[in-house]
Nucleic acid binder design. Sequence first.
DNA 1: TACTCTAGTGCAAACGTTTGCGTTATTCAA
DNA 2: TTGAATAACGCAAACGTTTGCACTAGAGTA
Lengths: 351, 351
Amino acid sequence: MVQRKRVTLRDLAEHLNINTSTVSRALSEKSSEMISPDVVKRVRKAAQEMGYKQNAAAYALKMGSTKTIGMIIPDLMNPVFPPIIRGIQSVLDQYGYTAFLAYSENNEGTAHTEVERLISRGVDGIIYAAAFRTDSVVDLCKSQGIPLVLVNRVVDQGDVDTVKVDDSLGIKMAVDHLLDLGHRKIGFIAGPKNISVSYIRLRAFTRTMAEHDLEVEPHRIVEAHALSEAAGEQAMSVFLGQNPDATAIIASNDLIALGCFTALKQFGYTCPKRMSIVGFNNMPYLDWFATPLTTVSIPHFQMGERSAELLLKRIKADNVDYNEEVLLKPKLVIRKSTAPLIASKKKSGST
Amino acid sequence: MVQRKRVTLRDLAEHLNINTSTVSRALSEKSSEMISPDVVKRVRKAAQEMGYKQNAAAYALKMGSTKTIGMIIPDLMNPVFPPIIRGIQSVLDQYGYTAFLAYSENNEGTAHTEVERLISRGVDGIIYAAAFRTDSVVDLCKSQGIPLVLVNRVVDQGDVDTVKVDDSLGIKMAVDHLLDLGHRKIGFIAGPKNISVSYIRLRAFTRTMAEHDLEVEPHRIVEAHALSEAAGEQAMSVFLGQNPDATAIIASNDLIALGCFTALKQFGYTCPKRMSIVGFNNMPYLDWFATPLTTVSIPHFQMGERSAELLLKRIKADNVDYNEEVLLKPKLVIRKSTAPLIASKKKSGST
DNA sequence: TACTCTAGTGCAAACGTTTGCGTTATTCAA
DNA sequence: TTGAATAACGCAAACGTTTGCACTAGAGTA
């Protein structure tokens, strides 16, 4: 039975010999109370039997709301994002919203055009996980008046809804952990500084070190050109070249940390014996690794949930004026890639 | 500058003192040739300047096509699917299509309701990666007349577009590999048999063994209740209990293979010395694992591409009558979880 | 000059909803 | 018995497009 034509309100109305407006009201939860109970019953029964499904396009055209949102992800291959998406979906489902998925390829240009496409599709809001520290997407959304919430990566300008984790705290925990283990000559492989998380984590590193009266010299910091494995390997290679004495490294990212591993191997160094490594994000399956990575864990799923909730709230109440910032707590998970500084090396605090 | 109201065709028309129909035609690539060139130029210039964006809802309502499709994924946490999605997106982008993302949680019921929601949203087609061997979703799509293509998991009834990989060949390669290494007492941890891949891989296992005159006894096969790590561990435990003599195992899935690892550990067995393990799918980051898993690799990204191409083709040409099946080739990637059978054990073929 | 053609535009209907307002029928109070 | 009040429903417009058809003006032909 191939029913090529969808059944419409009018079909139902004609079948029941009533007006389409009555059918519409009877089907709506809100306005069904202005219709007599038995008509409501008959309409709903008929709708059920004839397989009526509301035409989303017509609804959207009439109401100006599509009950859809867009998600922009820098890269699905990064295992951090699936759980976030999962969290978003879980709350969206409860409110009858559906999500478009788009990639930015970590490129602001494509992010911009993707957002334009989504806006043109009439999304009610956007969850943006691919922000740079200055990003034209937020201006675009503001000018079009469509709700936007930033996840994880935020933007320098303050007036926008965000849900992020306390990166500074995370780095502080990582540094403290290494300090506890006796490490002093600690390096940092930073991510691109036009991304907030990279920038913030780097600053938190130097600041935390400073709080312990440890000054970090410039050669102790190398910036990877991307938050990826390859970029991490490359950066770690130059780091090792100029830091033969370093005993521990903090990577801006788990992926970068992986790159550090392979660079380490190329130098014939072992982890954690020769050098401790700590990452950031706690990507899945880390426990299975040859040397399980110590890393700071962030509540991916919860981040997704919170951002969806925030967005929905903004969509409902149209007060774009005020913005909210939800800050989630990270957690250090200690595995095998960090170990106490071996006694054979002479310990020297910074002068 | 918050421009709350989107600019419409009528806005453009009034601004240029022409009719909306002329504007519409001037903007359309097809029908712009029936409009005088300089009007076309003026219209497009104005559209550019005033920031006109076509209202997708109105277009969809009028034309009956939303230029959207839906993707149903059993579980995003399974690292196999992100690359597939990536592949789908890559071709969708080229044709101006956008994709909804939904989960089935490996549950036919929720898959069904999600598909209904997507259909109600007016998607032009659906890519379904979560099929069971008999699945009401394909009947649903057929009855509604909306194009459907199955990826990876297929369905017993034959008359539907699918893109899958040659699972039988994959298993054959795995078996041959183990045989080459000298193994004879080989077990199989199957997935739920209501999923095509599980079923096909299991059959391929017994058949390949038979082709080598090796009969596989029933206790050599244990079915996990899901394609997950936990289920794999559980199944492997019962397997090890009833197969103290087995020297190799094939898992229906990488995730199940991981479960096998932990069950192995609980029995105090080592891999690959005491037992070889081979998985299926070649999920990311396997190279990093403590004992890198030998597994059969499938072309995830390409699967996504092909399925999107197939779907788009079906959407264009409305011939739902004929269906196509594209079959991709797997590849065995040998890592460290498989090793030659140690000589100390007495080799015995099956009687 | 009068005719037909055609290129270029305008008119208006339609897609399927929702909703303000008008209409009818019923109830209740006086 | 009459009035107003209320409950239930119908009418029609509107959301922003696309497109078949009608219309106009200028060009070409006889």
